[in-house]
Design a protein around this nucleic acid. Structure first.
Lengths: 251, 251
DNA sequence: CTTAGTCTATCGATCGTTTGGACAAATAAC
DNA sequence: GTTATTTGTCCAAACGATCGATAGACTAAG
């Protein structure tokens, strides 16, 4: 229960490397990523306020002050996690929607993109979803604006579909319901569960279309009636460097 | 920025009352409720770990140690909030389902009950939804079990409907999607928004039935095709004494 | 030799919790 | 009906532990 450091002989020697890197600069980048991944893991598990900087440093196998070389405060650590996460979420969505015109296909596409991202990066997504309340000041405004912009994409897809008769008009709550149920994937998805990511995306696209009462020429639209984006492509776009793929070694 | 107490002259005199009560015992109950409501408000706003006991005491207008007269620890405060919340959520659901047999009507009923509860008690519901990770030990097990039992009710409704052909088979994920989208109501619902609670319940029942592809004799089921529980009844059952109906005065 | 990167050690502030009464309402004694 | 005693409720002050953050020494790569 040492307060200062509890992995005494286990720490790598001074200036030691996490992975053999060529230059010092490459090594520095590795360390920063390692710290962000560890922070993401802990934030997702215990929440931002429930995680101490010593928890992060210990789990990452570095000294507390080494963290402050990369981030000038704990809040900045959270900011980095949220910014990187939202950036990839938004850009992967935009790219996937780029050349899709039909409202039903657009809805299926944005659902699939969103679900793929949240299933592939559950911890980072959880942090972005849960820890918004821990942000303050300008950062909070920025992140909020980015999230609003993303939700506006969903809104316009829905209203376009309502306007041309593809969807039933279910009001503003439809967007909120769709976002909640797809974002929720991050909270329960397990890689070795019932469904793999491609099937999961298709299933959610199906449920989303059904929820909106999607139809063409009087016939209800199923997921198999619309072109779904290629899942491999979705997963490549959703790749997030700070998502921790395994439990921190020092935990 | 006094550390000990920041509402100096504003506090009521020693032994003063929040509301005029008859007996001392009645007064004590009022104070306990007042503390739980204040805690619920702050937990929902800043999270459990983001809320200090001094924050709660100050917002409630009592001394820190007065809190320890009612709860022997901060964790016990959270426990009380979550237990009371889940108890009402579960029992109101059970009561509403008591004499409903048809799967489609049961789904609509449980959705309406869930949505009504989350719209009426958003802060307590948010705490129960978000702060589970802050629980430890036996309490965590208990709450988890209660939540699992509640979700099992949903599962059996869905599988009954799938079995008799009312619903399409959308696997386990359907339950998770439905629960996420309905629980999410607590995060965005505002009393003066687009919809009042009765309309909100109906809308969600509609979306839920659509999501499950509910149909009878080949015809798709709408919300108007099934009997929805009386919303006034739902709201009475969902009444939660610890839900803070207004911002704490000392905030 | 310079400096990027990491260390140990420590800071003041705040954390959850405890102590030892103060005081009023309820009860008992007269 | 007044006074004394007990009980229930709450407070101010302080405790040790832990919090986020910093200072300054040291190492090794460039």
């Amino acid at each position: 229960m040492a307060t200062t450091n509890q992995n005494g002989g286990n720490r790598r020697p001074r200036g030691g490397r996490i992975r053999a890197g060529s230059s010092r600069r490459a090594q520095s980048e590795q360390t920063e990523l390692h710290l962000l991944r560890t922070a993401t893991w802990l934030f997702s598990e215990r929440g931002f306020h429930g995680t101490g900087i010593r928890d992060i440093a210990d789990a990452a196998g570095v000294a507390v002050s080494a963290m402050y070389y990369y981030a000038s405060s704990k809040d900045e650590l959270l900011e980095a996690v949220m910014r990187r996460t939202l950036d990839v979420l938004v850009s992967s969505g935009e790219e996937t929607l780029r050349d899709v015109a039909d409202p039903a296909e657009r809805l299926a596409a944005v659902i699939a993109s969103h679900v793929a991202f949240h299933a592939r990066n559950p911890r980072a997504a959880k942090v972005a979803d849960h820890e918004f309340h821990a942000l303050t000041g300008q950062v909070r405004q920025d992140i909020l604006q980015q999230r609003d912009a993303y939700e506006t994409v969903w809104s316009s897809i829905l209203s376009a579909g309502v306007h041309d008769g593809t969807f039933k008009d279910r009001g503003t709550v439809a967007r909120l319901a769709l976002l909640q149920m797809t974002t929720g994937v991050a909270h329960w998805y397990r890689p070795h569960g019932e469904l793999k990511i491609p099937q999961l995306c298709e299933r959610f696209a199906e449920m989303g279309l059904a929820l909106m009462g999607a139809s063409r020429e009087g016939r209800a639209l199923e997921a198999c009636d619309v072109n779904l984006p290629d899942t491999q492509l979705l997963l490549r776009r959703a790749e997030l460097t700070i998502e921790p793929r395994e439990k921190p070694t020092g935990l």
